[in-house]
Design a binder for these strands. Structure first.
Lengths: 181, 181
DNA sequence: CACGGCTTGTTCGTTGAATGAACAAAGCGA
DNA sequence: TCGCTTTGTTCATTCAACGAACAAGCCGTG
């Protein structure tokens, strides 16, 4: 899907940062990946949480699958789900760095979210190392908690679900799929 | 300058990552900041190294100055220079993570660039911690070295200067400004 | 001072992507 | 079978990126 238009890319740049931005640097793409870490997997959940045009979401998801960042799998209820691959999970340091910078310079009410080690409850530093047990924690073992800077005026099911502590990468229950098989 | 158009932003997203992408997430912006770390400071050097339209470069530089990521200073020879602020230097983890991911997944010939501690020569790990002396190294003390994956077919003065080891944040000598006052 | 070149932009027409609404196909339960 | 939900596609409009042409300021030189 989505043959990338010529000259809309960074091919003149011989640089690993430019190559990465080629894949994840387009508008909305990193927010899609952020939501994937939060446990969003379904087309309609991305749609309502991001407020993105359907055509753009469809194109971005297709590109990310093509690049091997997301995988399209058959989920419960017969619906397709978009899930981060190992290659996608490896983007965690990028998102963590972006979030930390925003917390430091664009978040007057304090951090929007904080991270803890799911197993021992310890707080995680800027490289996801647990301050209690000292281990470097994999994304699946990170507990995401709402922080002081998180406002409460978003009404969509994804935002509502994220107001409770939630483990990264585990599927969100958004109500549209509350029934379990 | 450059009043940001309504609805072209991520204001619906209450998230520090989205706020960061609001500032640095537009096309070309992170590559401009990357070049700033490499020591590029002048309009014409950004222009030739990035191959970006002048109007876009002008708009991006103005935005970054407005956001406090870059500062516009009077450099040698009476020319203006765009220099990273402390807020801008704090973006180093973002760029480092993007580069590392590209090296890991998009660079079959090996890393494009490597980093060393300028003082002791030790190699730096993924958080710029020196493997020799153990300290976490500030960007100004990082020595950038061309890696195996760096091709040699770019002919502009900035690319040529970057084929030699170079300390981050120190101004590049591009030949156009070789004469010192 | 006049001149010409270099640097640093701005302006403008064209191209291409994002947007939002309307339309469409496929699965599933009643 | 019918209707609803999900997952898209299509289309006209709006906006940004592109590349070339134009322009202002500074500099050294004659």
């Amino acid at each position: 899907m989505a043959v990338m238009a010529l000259r809309r890319d960074y091919t003149s740049q011989v640089c690993s940062m430019a190559r990465t931005l080629e894949i994840v640097g387009e508008r909305w793409t990193l927010l899609i990946i952020r939501d994937s870490f939060f446990g969003v997997r379904r087309f309609s959940d991305f749609l309502v949480h991001l407020g993105i045009p359907k055509a753009v979401l469809s194109e971005r998801l297709g590109s990310l699958v093509d690049w091997g960042v997301l995988a399209r799998e058959l989920g419960r209820g017969g619906h397709d789900e978009y899930v981060l691959t190992e290659k996608g999970v490896a983007l965690r340091p990028v998102l963590r760095a972006l979030g930390d910078w925003g917390d430091a310079f664009c978040s007057p009410d304090g951090p929007v979210r904080t991270y803890r080690h799911h197993d021992c409850g310890g707080r995680l530093d800027d490289i996801d190392q647990c301050e209690t047990c000292g281990r470097r924690v994999a994304p699946a073992d990170i507990l995401l908690e709402p922080g002081a800077g998180l406002s409460t005026d978003a009404t969509d099911p994804v935002s509502a679900a994220l107001r409770s502590p939630h483990r990264l990468l585990t599927p969100l229950e958004t109500g549209s799929r509350a029934r379990v098989s």
